Amino acid sequence: MNAPHARLRILIVDDHPMIRNGLAAMVRGEADFELVGEAAHGADAVRIAPELAPDVVLMDLVMPQMDGIEAMARLRPLLPSTRFVILTSLTEPGEVQRALQAGASGYLNKTASAQELVNVIRAAHGGRRVLSPEATEALIAASQPGQPGADLTQRERELLALMARGLTNQDIAEQLRIALPTVKFHITNILSKLGVGNRTEAVLLALKHRLVPPAG
């Protein structure tokens, strides 16, 4: 008699309990999947994953204490055969590129169906890289000439929108609850990515290309 095939060992990493519960139910519903653990953020994943040795990690990007990118960067040397599938609501080109550079085998939007996620998990475990249509479109748009702002991160877009409302650096720091040097760092990146020399030019370009909501 042939020995049964080993099930795919899956670790779920997400800071929202409801999402973890839904993903856990999906994993348990597949005969060839085995849920080996759950983590509420990247630091938890880094702590438990080496011992669990999952075949596939379902990883959120934005989490407290440690995000998915840093967690992947720390775990890949420890788990070279493990595949990482990003499950997130972010589809900005910069985030997709960062995830792929960090070693993600899959990038899927949280609006994906359970069957889509199952297919991506199996594909990633089989050595294929699978991107959601939204992530693919974002990368294509970013590669097209004449698309200013396509590589802005979500945080940079938030700052740009506040700049367009006329907020000062200090106002932005207080509203986003981040340090003033962090605001200045983000603004420097925004100006560089947009190819402009000052805040006024950045705001005008952002309004022209609808990177931020129009002032109302």
Rank of each mutant, 00 (worst) to 15 (best):
D55R: 04
N189C: 04
M26N: 04
V46N: 15
L79D: 00
P54G: 10
L23H: 08
A104H: 11
N2V: 13
A124H: 11
A104V: 11
D44F: 10
I69R: 03
S81W: 00
N169Q: 15
G126M: 03
L35G: 06
N109W: 00
H16S: 10
I172A: 08
S81C: 02
L87S: 07
F185I: 03
L131C: 12
T91P: 00
A138H: 08
N189T: 01
M72T: 07
G37D: 05
G149S: 10
T136C: 03
K184Y: 03
L176S: 08
S113D: 14
L79C: 09
Q144L: 07
M163D: 03
R157V: 01
E34D: 13
S192P: 00
K184P: 00
A150I: 09
M26Q: 09
Q147I: 11
E156N: 06
L78H: 08
E92G: 07
V120F: 01
I121N: 05
I140S: 08
D14L: 00
Q147C: 05
G68W: 03
M72S: 09
A71H: 07
R76W: 01
L204T: 15
E95G: 05
Q170Y: 08
P133M: 10
M163W: 05
G146L: 04
L139H: 02
P80H: 12
G197Q: 10
A24Y: 06
L52N: 12
V57K: 15
G103R: 06
V96G: 04
R128H: 09
A102T: 02
E95W: 11
V183K: 15
G126V: 02
G103L: 05
A202I: 13
A49R: 12
L108T: 08
R129G: 00
L131V: 13
M1T: 12
Q147N: 12
A114S: 11
A71I: 02
T182Y: 05
P50T: 09
A43S: 15
S105Q: 14
L11C: 08
V203P: 05
R129I: 05
H5Q: 08
E158V: 07
E137N: 07
E92P: 02
D171K: 15
L87M: 07
R155D: 12
P213M: 12
G103N: 03
A31G: 11
I178F: 07
A31K: 14
V36Q: 10
V118H: 02
V85E: 02
Q170S: 11
R157E: 04
T136L: 09
M66Q: 15
T91C: 12
E137H: 05
D151T: 07
S105T: 11
L194T: 13
A142D: 13
L90C: 11
I69L: 07
